[in-house]
Design a protein around this nucleic acid. Sequence first.
DNA 1: ATATCAAATTAAGAATCCATAATAATATCA
DNA 2: TGATATTATTATGGATTCTTAATTTGATAT
Lengths: 219, 219
Amino acid sequence: MISKTVENYLKNIFLLSENNKVVTTNEISKKLKIKASSASDMLKKLKDKGLLNYEKYNGVSLTVKGKKIATTIVRKHRLWETFLVKKLNFKWDEVHEVAEQLEHIDSEKLVSLLDNYLGYPEFDPHGDPIPNTHGTFPKTNSIAINKLKINEKGTVMGVLQDNKEFLMFLNKIGLNIGSFIQVKNILKFDDSIEIKINKKEYLITLELARNILVKKEEN
Amino acid sequence: MISKTVENYLKNIFLLSENNKVVTTNEISKKLKIKASSASDMLKKLKDKGLLNYEKYNGVSLTVKGKKIATTIVRKHRLWETFLVKKLNFKWDEVHEVAEQLEHIDSEKLVSLLDNYLGYPEFDPHGDPIPNTHGTFPKTNSIAINKLKINEKGTVMGVLQDNKEFLMFLNKIGLNIGSFIQVKNILKFDDSIEIKINKKEYLITLELARNILVKKEEN
DNA sequence: ATATCAAATTAAGAATCCATAATAATATCA
DNA sequence: TGATATTATTATGGATTCTTAATTTGATAT
């Protein structure tokens, strides 16, 4: 039986490794809010279990086996978030902590009945894609706001972060899934970006922009 | 923060202490499927935390504080079982293991929204009463089958056990919530009981009978 | 009352996962 | 390139919760 702790390591390594890039011990320890030494310790064990590729000082990447487990945790997390928002009327920026717990419930039957109950959703309330039983993610053509050029427009499709502060800020400036936005300016000074939402303009940091996905308007 | 393990000790001590009777170390270790020595160890710690009354060799009972925690776990367990059966279409004898996990999810908001979503049910799919937010159980006038005299009749209101084998046996003999039963005979030889369900007669053990609740037919 | 048996407790230690502190490897930059 | 900063690793140990084995307590029956 695989522990909740191991599941969390795998899930977070998966989330940190966009484009299959190698993930460092430090990144992991920050994400999991533990010391790097603890992470180092665990990485060795996970390697021994065949869950990740790891050579000392060179960071890690998931094996097929590790990625499979990580994907099911992500799937469960996002299905539960969808349930919490769609069925129980949680707000989208309130669900993360609870889903962090629910994602570790171990029952294939539960997950598949839940998926069915929700109508096999492809995206969670944050716009993040939900992998299916086989671990396959739905296709998207979204890009992060910081990839847009000045004057380009798009529709907000999702976010890459579950962080509460982040989500509350988006709420505050009226930026939701489906919002229509336009990049008005990009400040070289600090890489921040001016965007227009509902006729109002806001300045957001690169860090924020990197975490908001839009479907670019073709024209 | 209170651990899942502690929650399980408290819940099971609560379930073992009908009529506030004292619970023994052995009973606890059997219920939790651990060695008596482990239980003994833990009981000392729970006493120190003010969760139960415990004098060596004299068994335990929950303090008010311990009972409060136990009740919220029972509440969560039964609400989740109700959800699984009513919303996700689990069978009533399939929900126990999953509910054992779900009961430890820590979020008051989740529990109260779930309760609301289910329409504030008073009984779970096994007929067990669900305590409200304040820990109060709904009133019932049910009694166990072994308390009935020969020829007395009743309607099955619930069971006192979540054990899978037990529930599957009940299913097999067609005994469900709402079934109408009559005690035909009580064998002094081994305390077993002959009951009639749907025109058929079955012999059940005292142990079984003790765990099936009926509302006695007044006549 | 004492022998005997069952129940409960204690002591020692294993597994898991975290931390602190010391050390080693790698990266950076003048 | 060599000094220094950053990042990663190892060694050691603590908390939690379990086990086994030895011991103590309590209950029962003659």
